[in-house]
Amino acid sequence: MSTRIWVERAADGSWEGHSDEGAVVTFGKGEGLFSPGDLLKIALAGCAATSSQFAVEHTLGEGKGAKVVVSAQYDAEDDAFLSFDEQVSVDASDAELSQEDADKLADRVKRHIDKACTIKHTLIRETPVRMSVTVRQ
């Protein structure tokens, strides 16, 4: 079951995203705020990071994780992202892994992300968005 998410305008003009579980994220337009497009890239990066967590911790120890950087190619004319580039980096410098073990870890990380990242799965396919608008009087 999906968590219910909603957004509301804040008094300062920014927007706040809320979940039934109490999470809050501030976004909007302007300095110091994530845009909705940024949040999409964060969702993709966060999904890769959490999907790869088990593989990284299993090899490097509890509390270790990947750094995931996402950039996107944007088409201003169509107001749409054309593609995303995801760079997953694991700092294993303290572990003194052999090249073979580093390659195995990289492969496991990729497989975990490919298997478990819902955001990546969603973005790869064409996903319909149904919208309704209600004006209360």
Rank of each mutant, 00 (worst) to 15 (best):
M1G: 13
S2I: 09
S2C: 04
R4G: 06
R4S: 08
W6A: 11
W6I: 07
V7H: 11
V7R: 05
E8Y: 10
A10V: 03
A11Y: 05
S14Y: 09
S14Q: 07
W15L: 14
W15F: 15
E16H: 08
G17E: 14
H18A: 00
D20C: 03
E21H: 04
G22C: 12
A23D: 08
V24H: 15
V25G: 05
G28A: 05
G28K: 09
K29L: 06
E31V: 08
E31A: 14
G32S: 06
G32E: 14
L33S: 06
L33T: 06
L33R: 14
S35V: 06
G37Q: 00
G37W: 01
L39A: 08
K41T: 03
K41W: 02
A45Q: 02
C47Q: 00
A49S: 13
S51V: 05
S51K: 03
S52Q: 03
S52N: 02
F54L: 06
E57P: 02
H58G: 02
T59H: 03
G63A: 07
G63L: 02
K64V: 03
G65E: 14
A66T: 11
K67F: 09
K67H: 09
K67N: 07
V68G: 01
V68H: 01
V68Q: 00
V69I: 13
S71V: 07
A72Q: 06
A72C: 08
Q73S: 09
Y74M: 06
Y74H: 15
D75Q: 11
D75T: 08
D75I: 08
A76I: 03
A76C: 02
E77H: 10
E77K: 10
D79W: 03
A80C: 08
L82D: 13
L82Y: 04
S83Y: 04
D85L: 06
D85A: 03
D85E: 15
E86H: 01
E86A: 04
V90R: 01
D91L: 07
D94G: 11
A95R: 04
E96I: 07
E96M: 05
S98L: 07
Q99I: 05
E100R: 10
D101P: 00
D101F: 01
D101K: 12
A102E: 13
A102L: 06
K104P: 01
K104W: 03
L105D: 01
A106T: 05
R108Y: 01
V109Y: 01
V109E: 05
K110I: 03
K110T: 11
H112E: 08
I113V: 12
D114V: 04
D114L: 04
K115E: 08
C117I: 05
C117P: 02
T122W: 00
L123V: 14
I124W: 05
E126T: 14
T127W: 01
T127M: 07
T127H: 12
T127N: 14
V129R: 03
R130Y: 08
S132N: 13
V133H: 13
V133C: 11
T134F: 15
T134M: 12
T134I: 12
V135Q: 15
R136P: 06
R136F: 08
Q137A: 11
